[in-house]
Design a protein around this nucleic acid. Structure first.
Lengths: 211, 211
DNA sequence: ATTCTTCTCCCCCGTTTTCGCTATTTGAAT
DNA sequence: ATTCAAATAGCGAAAACGGGGGAGAAGAAT
């Protein structure tokens, strides 16, 4: 028997979900709440396996609530349900530790399927959400690639050390070259990156994923 | 009629998939190939809407092939199918531009469902894959969070400008404060960040997502 | 053979940064 | 009323950095 708690401020939807759960095979509803006040205490007293969490709620929103749940009950799963298709919602929900993300347009049987999937180690997502997530992933992790500054291997090494906070002296020592050589390399790096200070170079190196 | 091309080196599976597609409603198979040699030419001559792509193949592997397809045919979708559950596969497939990722343990009807989902703008994923992806997302994008350096608002402003490559003088001018004040602030920032140079501060600021 | 790039090193010179220490003002908190 | 944090500002000295020039050796490319 999988235990589910519901946090959803819309009375009608909340009741519908509760009834749905109680009538579904293998599920029981341990609580259905309109907001996240006293959420941690409620979950402490009425433990569950998965929380069905709305995002838009008065008081503590669903994303902050998800963070708290994951902090205090690491084994509990949180399935996000929301009416809105918003990148920052998706992004933040994932970072907060959600195990799935479905839209409220999902059918009743879809809700049940999603909850079953969560319980069996999956992460159900409305198809469009999954697509957005892949794109967020790409945008955020994909090397910029377009920008190639034609740095030589040695220059990349030295830039890397600069990014790690090393001074000219330390770089010279670690690389077994003279201080002036480091200076030369860094001068060339600055020229190629079109910058004229270490801070600028580090900033550009990290943002353009050169290192 | 959705047109599908198959790249899969296992003869049996390739034939099975081809038969499955031809018998399924709304699908047609434009080609079934054992490797990715001449892939671009083949796709050029036999255009399709979605490519069903294996990862492990002799010669060009499915991930590199996916990159090429996305470069040359941006509207074409690639649905990855693989026998292995491997983080780096998942990560690289997503970065390469895959529209979905399913395991070969998927049932025939699951394959058809997945292809339909791809066509309608979704990104089907085997549940466990979706979970891994969420975790990869978190690991790679989650702010360290634990680190709060207690910077004041003013200090954050100045750190931001430092990250943007501004010199003390420029910061002073833009902030309408004396050069020495900038010096004071930066000194305090360094102390709080436990660094002792601008490059280190910038590096830490970006990596710990202070800015 | 000659050119080109890369890595190496040197000189000079001025500017910028870093690090001590001190100090005033302001606004919020108690 | 007093305490406290934050923002402001100054001085001085040592260290580091940035920009200019030049130059030799090794290796690849032609």
């Amino acid at each position: 028997m999988t235990r589910i708690a519901i946090f959803e401020d819309n009375n009608h939807l909340r009741n519908t979900l509760q009834v749905l759960l109680e009538s579904a095979d293998g599920f029981t509803c341990t609580g259905a709440y309109a907001n996240c006040n006293d959420m941690l205490e409620l979950l402490e007293e009425n433990p569950c396996d998965t929380v069905l969490m709305d995002i838009e709620m008065p008081g503590l929103n669903g994303i902050e609530a998800t963070k708290l749940i994951r902090q205090h009950f690491p084994v509990m799963h949180v399935l996000i349900q929301t009416a809105f298709f918003d990148d920052s919602y998706i992004f933040n929900a994932i970072c907060a530790g959600a195990s799935g993300y479905i839209l409220k347009t999902t059918s009743p049987s879809g809700y049940i399927d999603a909850l079953r999937e969560v319980e069996s180690g999956g992460s159900p997502m409305t198809p469009g959400i999954a697509r957005r997530m892949l794109e967020l992933f790409r945008v955020n992790l994909q090397p910029a690639s377009a920008t190639d500054y034609q740095l030589t291997a040695r220059e990349k090494e030295i830039l890397q050390m600069l990014v790690n906070g090393k001074s000219y002296k330390m770089i010279a020592a670690e690389s077994n070259i003279a201080n002036d050589t480091v200076k030369s390399h860094i001068r060339n790096i600055y020229a190629k990156l079109h910058v004229n200070s270490g801070t600028e170079a580090v900033s550009k190196a990290i943002r353009d994923r050169i290192v």
